[in-house]
Design a protein around this nucleic acid. Structure first.
Lengths: 196, 196
DNA sequence: GTCTATATGTTGATAGAC
DNA sequence: GTCTATCAACATATAGAC
């Protein structure tokens, strides 16, 4: 599974790992197949042996991120219990998945919608947000969140906060699900605020 | 100031307004000068009469956003008073400026760092964040924010939340500084949290 | 599975007429 | 201040040898 950095042969997965790093550094549009071939240490044609083209690399990468996120919604703790507890679980797990799949989620969040693949990714992201917004709505109705919270607006701000982590987080090696206490900080800030 | 959509002549400012919309829709790298000329209704050469090239359009646009944000730090309410009140002012005003200069701030926040102009924008953004993080630190020290708040982490999450507004907010015409109650919601969520 | 060479289209930018 | 025409550079993708 783990391969040598001096490798001379790639799998789709190992090629994808290199690709996503470059996409995140230079942007998808700003990355040429030449850039990718240099980063991978193989020729452009060799890349075309593994995938149909640049857009397929994007689709595989954002698909991986989306699978991780949607998996959260099927976890037992997201399906049963008090709405506020289910919401807290989704918030914490979303942060954890974002950290665990950081490069893939980063790419997903930067997609703008120029191509068919990008539009598909945007649509699936909206699906995910809507399902969480529904959870917020239930928690407000149950009186478990402040009554003056507008569910749609609160969900957007909440996920804006979580998603922004990709802009600055870099693994420290400590790793693990609760990397550097970030998920704790997110849950604490979201539910209790900054004020003393 | 406001010009006819059927205009046949542009100023740098009016050209910039059109340009920024296209950049935000297609991404900077994903936008060709051909795209811009079509959106503006003039030829590519005519654009080059107003600006030296594509990168100058980017520089002018993000410069406008940065000027608006740095202006906040010089406002009286950001310079004197209890740290927590100064922080609340900066949080509210940042949200207001983001909404008032939405397309320009949107573009600023999407810059990645491929060109010199982009690196300059990233550096100025970091400056701004550092100055706010210092304010958070003061407020924690003064006991006005929860003691378990890590200033750098809290600042990042806080501004992540604010900046994410560009991903979904669209003006409703109501306008005004407190557009649709968004600044209120941001301040409330940031300082008091969601919990009932 | 990799390579070199190349086909084919798009890009940012310029020249010069009106 | 606008236009048409054009360019060199670079893009994605393919062909076919090893």
């Amino acid at each position: 599974m783990a391969e040598n950095p001096l490798r001379t042969t790639y799998t789709v997965d190992s090629l994808l790992a290199v690709t996503v790093e470059v996409f995140n550094t230079r942007g998808y549009d700003g990355t040429s197949m030449e850039d990718l071939s240099r980063a991978a240490g193989i020729s452009k044609s060799s890349i075309y042996h593994h995938v149909r083209g640049k857009e397929e690399l994007l689709r595989l990468a954002v698909g991986r991120a989306l699978d991780g996120l949607f998996g959260i919604l099927d976890e037992p703790a997201a399906l049963a219990g008090r709405p506020v507890d289910r919401l807290e679980h989704v918030v914490r797990r979303t942060t954890e998945v974002l950290l665990a799949e950081l490069p893939y989620v980063t790419l997903l969040l930067r997609v703008r919608g120029n191509t068919g693949t990008e539009l598909w990714a945007l649509e699936r992201r909206r699906d995910f947000d809507h399902r969480v917004a529904e959870l917020v709505r239930e928690a407000v109705t149950a009186g478990e969140l402040r009554a003056d919270v507008e569910p749609r607006l609160a969900t957007r701000l909440l996920f804006g906060m979580i998603n922004s982590i990709v802009e600055w987080y870099r693994p420290t090696g400590a790793g693990g699900p609760n990397a550097d206490g970030v998920p704790d900080a997110v849950v604490h800030l979201a539910f209790d605020g900054l004020r003393a």
